[in-house]
Design a protein around this nucleic acid. Sequence first.
DNA 1: TTTATCACTATACTTTTGTATAGTATAGAT
DNA 2: ATCTATACTATACAAAAGTATAGTGATAAA
Lengths: 120, 120
Amino acid sequence: MIEFESISEVKKCPKQYVLAINDTLNVISGKWKLPILASILYGNHRYKDIQSNIEKITPRMLSKELKELELNGVITRNVYDSTPVRIEYRMTESGEKILSVLDVMIEWGLAHRKATLENS
Amino acid sequence: MIEFESISEVKKCPKQYVLAINDTLNVISGKWKLPILASILYGNHRYKDIQSNIEKITPRMLSKELKELELNGVITRNVYDSTPVRIEYRMTESGEKILSVLDVMIEWGLAHRKATLENS
DNA sequence: TTTATCACTATACTTTTGTATAGTATAGAT
DNA sequence: ATCTATACTATACAAAAGTATAGTGATAAA
């Protein structure tokens, strides 16, 4: 069951594809999105954990980005009513799969660096 | 010959990977990079062709982005000294392979949309 | 009672990114 | 001499993204 055709095999990029690419870009672009996702993936789930893991991020940016990531369905925000209240951010199932995108980005980036150095 | 390990199998993201991801992001993020690359890929090679293909882009943005893409080794700028001078922009070999990144971005984007709609 | 922690919010500001509009240099055609 | 085309550049401006710094409210510990 073929889910979609590679854009290299398509005459003109369909609107669905454009939307899909934009959705993906929204999740990974900007200065802090990837550091935050990486931090959560590597085991930091609470606000303070993430903040001290990414030293240079300001609280404003951290909460802004967390909100956006939640809105985009990449992470969940879970409130535990202990005292003091504990809040945990975790990747959604779909969110975790973003790693497959990062993998090809790494692959292309490494290969491109190599190719560019060779021709210079 | 294994070229790299998936970041999901690695304890901490190596600096090389971070650089590779940033290289890739630099090539695809911003308002006009992908439209320009798509335009070239679909057969528009001259400044005016690309400009009229992307109606809303201003000449400033087009030349700025073309310069950056050239600098990043994704496209080449070829000058033919006919009169009037003809200039052609073309994808580099390495640049064309960015399609593999777009493919997984489309794949993730479509699947994520589906998953997000189902859980709402 | 003062101090500390958690998870933020508020306000003002700077930097980066993108827009609007006009102009340039070279050359050929009329 | 004027008009057109190509491939841009220059200047000023607006909008978006990110930074700096201080403060909030609830609770608990010393």
